[in-house]
């Protein structure tokens, strides 16, 4: 379920967030200009169970028609492939865990959200979240609050902010844990390496 939240946010919250809202429409227009991009991310995880925050960084590749590659480099190597039909986790030893979306509601939801977002289906995110958006010149922020239901049972809220790119994502869990992700060094994604194309299923 978490995977869909983050994926949704990263991918381009814009198209997903209802065009009915004018702010959302403008944010979407900003993000639509960059459908294929690469970026680096830094992630900080905080929890009462942790002695100190845990830091991670890695690279992200968004290829709107195909999916997302989320590559953690430090402190451990891990690659997550988010595609419409399948979610694949690959660890440092190359061991794969594959979940087809048709038999996994979590992954399926992620896949459906991705699909919906990529196809500009604006109603989809509102199925799970109440959305509040603010835009001021080129700076924008969005707050997503899950409605009563399965998502609300572990997720308190998400905040996303950015300009022509998504810059930060903050995830607050019900148990007090939180995750902050910030993105930098955005650039155009093309060309794909053959390995990336293979993982994303792009010919």
């Amino acid at each position: 379920m978490g995977r869909m939240i983050v994926a949704a946010t990263l991918l381009a919250l814009g198209p997903g967030a209802a065009a009915a809202d004018e702010s959302l429409a403008r944010i979407r227009a900003l993000l639509d200009a960059q459908p294929r991009l690469r970026a680096e991310f830094d992630q900080t995880r905080r929890s009462a169970e942790l002695e100190r925050p845990v830091l991670a960084h890695g690279r992200m590749l968004v290829w709107r028609e195909a999916g997302v590659l989320w590559q953690i480099e430090q402190p451990v190597k891990m690659l997550v492939v988010l595609r419409e039909d399948v979610t694949i986790q690959i660890d440092a030893n190359g061991r794969r865990r594959t979940q087809r979306t048709d038999d996994d509601a979590g992954a399926a939801r992620a896949g459906r959200i991705l699909g919906a977002l990529l196809n500009g289906d604006t109603a989809t995110l509102e199925q799970w979240f109440d959305i509040a958006a603010r835009i001021d010149a080129q700076q924008w922020s969005i707050a997503l609050t899950p409605r009563r239901g399965a998502v609300a049972s572990f997720l308190r809220s998400m905040q996303v902010s950015g300009d022509k790119y998504v810059r930060t994502v903050a995830i607050d869990e019900v148990n007090g844990d939180s995750t902050q992700i910030s993105f930098r060094n955005h650039r155009d994604a093309a060309p794909l390496t053959s390995e990336e194309a293979g993982l994303l299923g792009v010919r």
Binding site: M1, G2, R3, V6, A7, Q43, R45, V54, A56, W70, I72, P75, V76, M78, V80, L82, T87, D91, G106, A110, F154, I171, E173, N175, D177, T179, I181
Partner: peptide, 11 residues
């Protein structure tokens, strides 16, 4: 470490 840093986990 993988688990701690996986943002896609569903707790």
């Amino acid at each position: 470490l993988r688990r701690l840093n996986d943002p896609f986990r569903t707790p």
